[in-house]
Simulated assay, not measured.
Amino acid sequence: MRADVVKRTGLERQETRLLQPNHVFLMNLKGTASRGEDIVDGRRIAFLPRRAGSIIFMPAGSDWNGWDEGEATASYLLVSIEKGFADEVFAGMARHRPAVLPPSIGFRDGTAELALQRIALELKQPDPISATMVECQATQLLGQMLRLNGVHQEPAKGGLSSFDLKRAVDMIETLSDGRPTLADLAKEIGVSRFHFWRAFKQSTGMTPHAFIAQRRLEQSADMLRSTNLSATEIAMECGFGSSSHFATAFKRAFGAGPTEFRRKWRI
């Protein structure tokens, strides 16, 4: 397994060509790709703008090429997972037959993002238990990809419709004057607070509070990587009650405090 941070400076357009024997994850850390073209295994895929936090997954053996244009300064996290390791993970999860995951370009997922960040931090400054920690995070990452692609997964019953779930998530991510309350979200969907809480958890596997907390941590990690704001300023911007609460929650999620996390990413 390997993780590298790739930086781009002074280049608004870049060409892409990737053909690897291993599974590859590429996460945008800084900068936005606003337009371009992606071709995977000879098939053109609709291009979507890629902002900080967006993830690309290319299964082993996939041929990805194309180009993108965007901000002149950008950086990406590239994580490569050996096919043999992934096959063992899939064999244990996918019930009776190997899982085949399709390529995916430009998606957002909090669980996958946290796993990728933790893998990178462990590989940057390894200690005697880093190998075990990396394997655990890689297993979680691959399992999440199975879940996102619905491999051997029963559809959620009693959850929100895909349309209502998108409305709720959009409200959580775009509200500029603070995070929405449970009452706000339930009112937007037109159901009781209890019904919304139960249906949201059924659809996402997380309570609304846990989902919002995860989104706050993702936003704070993006800001630590891409801005020069202090940890206290980021804590306030992301809705944490205090800098100490922010530091505790961030270290629990990422395995490093805000200051250490920023320092490691800027090495």
Rank of each mutant, 00 (worst) to 15 (best):
2 R>D: 09
7 K>F: 09
8 R>G: 09
8 R>C: 06
12 E>V: 08
12 E>I: 15
17 R>K: 11
22 N>I: 08
22 N>A: 11
24 V>N: 04
26 L>T: 10
28 N>K: 14
30 K>D: 01
31 G>R: 10
31 G>V: 03
34 S>F: 15
57 F>R: 08
60 A>S: 04
64 W>I: 09
74 A>Y: 11
80 S>Y: 02
80 S>D: 00
85 F>T: 01
86 A>G: 03
87 D>M: 15
88 E>F: 10
89 V>W: 09
92 G>W: 13
93 M>V: 00
93 M>P: 03
95 R>Q: 13
97 R>P: 01
98 P>S: 02
102 P>C: 07
108 R>T: 02
110 G>F: 06
111 T>S: 11
113 E>Y: 12
119 I>N: 13
119 I>F: 12
123 L>Y: 02
123 L>F: 01
125 Q>D: 07
127 D>A: 06
132 T>W: 12
134 V>N: 07
140 Q>W: 05
145 M>F: 08
146 L>R: 13
149 N>A: 14
154 E>K: 15
154 E>I: 09
161 S>H: 13
165 L>K: 09
166 K>T: 00
170 D>V: 03
170 D>L: 00
174 T>D: 12
181 T>L: 07
191 V>A: 07
192 S>Q: 06
193 R>A: 06
196 F>S: 07
199 A>K: 10
201 K>Y: 01
201 K>G: 04
203 S>D: 02
205 G>N: 10
206 M>A: 15
208 P>R: 10
210 A>N: 11
211 F>K: 12
218 E>P: 02
223 M>S: 09
223 M>P: 02
227 T>G: 05
227 T>E: 07
231 A>Y: 01
231 A>I: 00
232 T>A: 14
235 A>T: 04
237 E>P: 03
242 S>T: 11
243 S>N: 13
244 S>E: 12
250 F>W: 11
250 F>D: 02
252 R>Y: 03
257 G>Y: 03
259 T>R: 14
261 F>S: 00
263 R>K: 07
265 W>R: 14
266 R>E: 00
267 I>K: 14
